[in-house]
Each structure stands twice: as structure tokens, then as C-alpha cells.
Amino acid sequence: MRRWLDSLEAEMGLDPLTARARRWVLGSYGVLSLALVVWGLLLWRDGGNLRPLLAFLLPLVLFLPSLLARRPRGHAWLAFVSLLYFMIGVNVAVLPGLGWLGWLIALAALALFGGCTFYARFRSRQLRTQAEGS
């Protein structure tokens, strides 16, 4: 995997790879947030309480400043947190009538994990290269 990433960096360069990974992160972040809002509203409709929606979205919102500031370390931590959302998605997928939503949450969380992992790698190398060039 490491050789493949190194050859990809040599072939394409860090700037396009970083931009592609950023788009991947933002897209999957948006899909995951939207799926969690839908699930939270479904829970609210059934139970009449918005606390689960807050509990699902709060960890994602806490990482928003790191995403906006383009910090590689924040993206790496978000990758770890996204695995918790993957587990939530798999659990929702086995609920009757919510299989589609659970798999959407699980796939969006996996996409977020991959995008954050790649972004953290490419952006940290990009920053290191810029610091060495200065």
C-alpha cells in the first residue's frame, strides 16, 4: 500500500491528490451528516426527543473547525471517529425497514475514513515539502 501511495504521489503530485482527498472528505462528511439527520428525525418522530440527533451530530460538528482549517491531525482523528459511525450504520442496517439508511451511514462513514486518511497523509507531506522549501 505504501509503495502504491508513493508511486501515486510521484505520478500525480501532492497538490491534485490533496485537493481530490479534500473533496472526498467534504462530500462524505455531508452525506454522513445528512443521513444522521434523517435517522435522528425518524427517531424523533417515533420517540419525540431530539437528544439522539444531538448526540449523533455533536462529534461531527466538533471536527468542523479542523476541516475548515485543513489541519491534517484533525482529519486523522476524524478518521478514527468515523469508524464509530460505521458501527452505528451497521447496527441501524439490521433494524427492520431501515436497512437502506444504515448502509448509507456505513458507506458514508467508510468513505469519510478513507478520505480523511488520504487527506491527512497528503496534506502533511505537502506541508512538510513547503516547510523544507522555505
Rank of each mutant, 00 (worst) to 15 (best):
V61G: 07
F122V: 04
N91Y: 10
A108H: 01
W100K: 10
Q130H: 11
L107G: 03
A79F: 03
L34V: 13
W4H: 12
L58T: 13
L50S: 04
L43Q: 15
L57K: 05
V94I: 14
Y29C: 07
L84W: 11
L127E: 12
F63L: 14
V31A: 15
E9N: 08
G27P: 02
D15W: 05
L17W: 03
D6H: 09
G97V: 01
A131C: 04
E132F: 15
D46V: 12
L127W: 04
E11Q: 15
A108C: 02
L112I: 02
L127I: 11
L98A: 10
T129K: 15
G133Q: 14
L14H: 00
E11P: 03
A19I: 08
L110Y: 00
F113Y: 07
I88S: 08
T18C: 09
L83H: 06
G115T: 03
A106V: 01
S33E: 07
R128E: 14
L42K: 14
G102Y: 01
V81R: 08
T129S: 15
P96W: 14
P16C: 06
G40T: 04
L5R: 13
A108M: 00
F86C: 09
V25K: 02
I105K: 00
L127N: 05
R71W: 12
H75I: 08
G30V: 04
D6C: 08
G48M: 06
L32T: 03
A108W: 01
Q130G: 07
A35R: 01
I105H: 01
R23V: 09
S82F: 04
L112P: 02
V37H: 06
L34T: 13
F86Y: 13
W39D: 10
L101P: 01
F63K: 05
R23S: 10
L53I: 03
D6R: 12
F56D: 02
S7T: 08
Y29E: 07
F63C: 07
L5V: 12
F118R: 14
L83K: 07
L78F: 02
G115D: 03
L98P: 03
G115A: 02
W39G: 06
A19Q: 13
I105F: 00
R23P: 01
W100D: 06
T129G: 09
N91W: 10
F122K: 04
L53R: 03
L104P: 00
S66F: 13
Y29W: 13
V81C: 10
R22H: 09
N91C: 13
L83R: 11
L5N: 07
T18S: 10
I88M: 15
F80N: 13
G13A: 05
G99T: 08
I88W: 08
R71G: 09
G97Q: 03
R128M: 12
F56P: 00
L8F: 04
L101T: 05
L95D: 08
R3C: 06
S134N: 15
L60Y: 04
D46K: 11
M1A: 15
L54R: 12
G133K: 13
A55C: 10
L67I: 09
A131S: 07
G48I: 06
D15R: 10
A79C: 09
G97H: 00
R45L: 15
L107T: 05
W77Y: 11
R128T: 15
A109H: 01
P52E: 02
E11H: 10
V92W: 00
A93W: 03
A55F: 15
H75F: 11
A35G: 02
V61K: 09
D15E: 12
V81G: 05
